[in-house]
Design a protein around this nucleic acid. Sequence first.
DNA 1: CGATCCCGCCACATT
DNA 2: AATGTGGCGGGATCG
Length: 882
Amino acid sequence: ENIFDRSRMAPKTPIKNEPVDLSKQKGCTPERNPITPVKLTDRPQPDPWTPTANLKILVSAASPDMRDREKKKELFRPIENSEQSDTPDSLQYDMVDDSTVDEFEKQRPSRKQKSLGLLCQKFLARYPSYPLSTEKTTISLDEVASILGVERRRIYDIVNVLESLHLVSRVAKNQYCWHGRHNLRQTLKTLQEAGELQYGELMTFFQHKEQDLEYKCGERKKETIPDTQDKSLVDFSEPDCTSASANSRKDKSLRIMSQKFVMLFLVSKTKIVTLDIAAKILIEETQDTVDHSKFKTKVRRLYDIANVLTSLGLIKKVHVTEERGRKPAFKWIGPVEFPVKTNEPRGNNPTSDPLPQTQRGVCAPYQICATRKQRFTRHASFNGAQPCEGTRRKVSSEPNSPRQERQDEYCSKMTDLAAVCRQKIEEDTRWVVRNPSTTSPLSLLPVPGDSDFCVNTLPQAVFPMVQADAPNLALLNGVSSQTLHPSTPATSKTENGKPTLLPSQPFLCFPSSSLFMLCGGPQENNLRETLPTTGEVGNRSAEAQAAVPPAACQKRSSHKCTSPSPPVDDEEPAAKKQAMEQSDVPLSLVVPKKPSESPKAESIPGSGCTPDEPLEAFHLDLTSPAAPEAANKESTKPLDSQEQEKWSQNKDPNEPSPGEEHISKENANQPFRPQYLYVQPTAGLSSFNFLFSANQTPGAISLAASQLPSLSLPCVVVPSAALASFPVVCSPTVTSPLSPIPDGPFSAATSMNFSVSSLASTAPVFIGTTAVVTPKISPTPSVDPQQPHPPLHLSPVLARSCGALKLDSPVCMGHPVTLLKLQQPSSTPLTPKSIRPARHEAFFKTPGSLGDPVAWKKNEGNQTRNASSVQRRLEISSTSPD
DNA sequence: CGATCCCGCCACATT
DNA sequence: AATGTGGCGGGATCG
């Protein structure tokens, strides 16, 4: 717009013409030059009116790159045409001339003209806000860069932010897929939920001030902005999946920062966030540490992000005046409420869900999830089975790659949350953090062992049965790998501590920063095998994090998969609902697996569970407790007692390392074992994470035990931070009835009292109350709705607990915790035997129900890293042995 | 002079 | 090694 004005208005501005540009242009079109002189005089008017057109022209002209002079011309003409539908060709010609002229005039593209915000607007103008689901628009970075006349670097800035909001997703190198705003709401909702967990308190803390402030803002009226719901969200629905992060590099990246930034707005009461506060919050270290330069850099990045968000009409610049004076700030002007979701009751049957294929496709992707980077793939996966064809091309290389992104995102989220928690904790005394050193309980737990070891165990433990689901496997692998390798420095500790499993007990410890919770039956299997391999790599930076809500995707997938049955209940509605839910529920833990076949399993009646939310995933197995039938495998006997006993016996934290074996055995032996894996997201911090199953005997766990028991938590997770502080999570079991419980708010949460001593840093502690649990369980869509198996081994209690966590237990709130329940098929090669659909996998996320698959993703991510693409593929392909 | 933030070097990741 | 990504911060502009 500015440009536009200028062109006309400013004619006079003799802006220094930029010789350079001119030269370039001329160079480009020497011939043309001759043409016209029309210019100046004309300039005021001609066709160029379309602001954009002018801009484009200018830009193209000015653009340093101008690689393809001619090309550009061509390119840009079309564009203009398109924009200006009317202008006759003749005009166009003129335009060209004019353009040159104009250039002279305005040329010097003032900085504003080259601003990222403007560039972003131009970028956005090229694509429909709500593209038809059917059409997939692929974006070529090179092409766009040349068209817009900017270096590719700038496009990355835009795309990264857009990707964080799922407006686009990377399909392949240089290729992005445009999704539009269909899923924006869901994405925002997810972010809001995640934000609540992470930053809720923080923001409150910082922002109370805001209220006072006055802000002035300027101008822009809101454009319509986004809201919207999705129509066909299905398509992309990835929001959950989130793409964000890339794993690559540090995970920090603009993507994650962008999501965090958005979260702050969504969490803020005033919807106004000042740059400095945002920068402080976003800087990991506590504010104190932050050095000025770092702060400054952060702010710079925030400006970049803010420009894009502004272009999207999500925020606008304002100024708040505080005591000291006025500070730059941004106000959220986008949608605030995200009603969309409806929970659908889908009865539990995920299977039945009739999700659109696309969605499913999305789901499918999970399977693989291999490399971090695969984002590209994600798109493909996105579409699901039907990946965008166009987009895929490159992707094809890794067609399946599922969306690690999600993982990443989740991870990132997790981390964020962790960071936030820390801060909060610091601020808030109420959270007590225990220093490992001081309180050693945690320390005790960790057992030295191999990562592999752990891994194996986990998988087994975690996924009991799975058979064949490739996806599952993938997950497992991923997980294991992650767990296995704590890439982070912290990890080193882990090495020391290494992840340990308690022998008898159902809990696992991971060094990695990230947290995972897994619940599943213990099936052992081959997982180990697979794991190890994957595990090797293991570097994961804890950093990555953004946890995201892959859940939705997963859910979808699960649903889709599961529900082969088409019509199911409500076709449309169902579909919609699903979509909605998915979107909404992103977090849900859906299991990635593809259930398709599972019908039988699914069929399980059990479903008694209440279906409720998409979360089902969680429910999955857990829920199943209710339905023993699930037990198909092991029967879901009431392990509880047995297990408990065993645990109690075994529990010794002492023998961690051996534990793994035990575990595995146990798993094998015992059908279920509730196991939870908790991984803390925090980046470097955490050294270990622990999960305890509350059910077990409290006594067993020394530390936890004391507390926990009292709490009667079903499970406790303690991540040890490298630091002193540990976050502890407890989910109190709900003693009773899960089912009834709706998601409700985290009622239980309050109950907890953990005191962790606060120590050092902030270790977040979470306690989950049981209460929450129930609700979601039933549905567990992704897996199998009914999930017979899921329950697997878990004792009801566990299940409950799990459920609770997932739910939204308040507990979780503090941190992002993710629980996963996976079913795992045996490791790859192994048996496909019962391939059942993933039925059991249950995936949890504690934290707000975000459903972030974070953990999940991480896993994948890890795997991916570890395994070469090839490996990945293999994995993906499913366990097939070769 | 502080607020913005363009620009592009250069490291790291992927091909 | 080439190329894709994208962190990062100097320093130019804006207001």
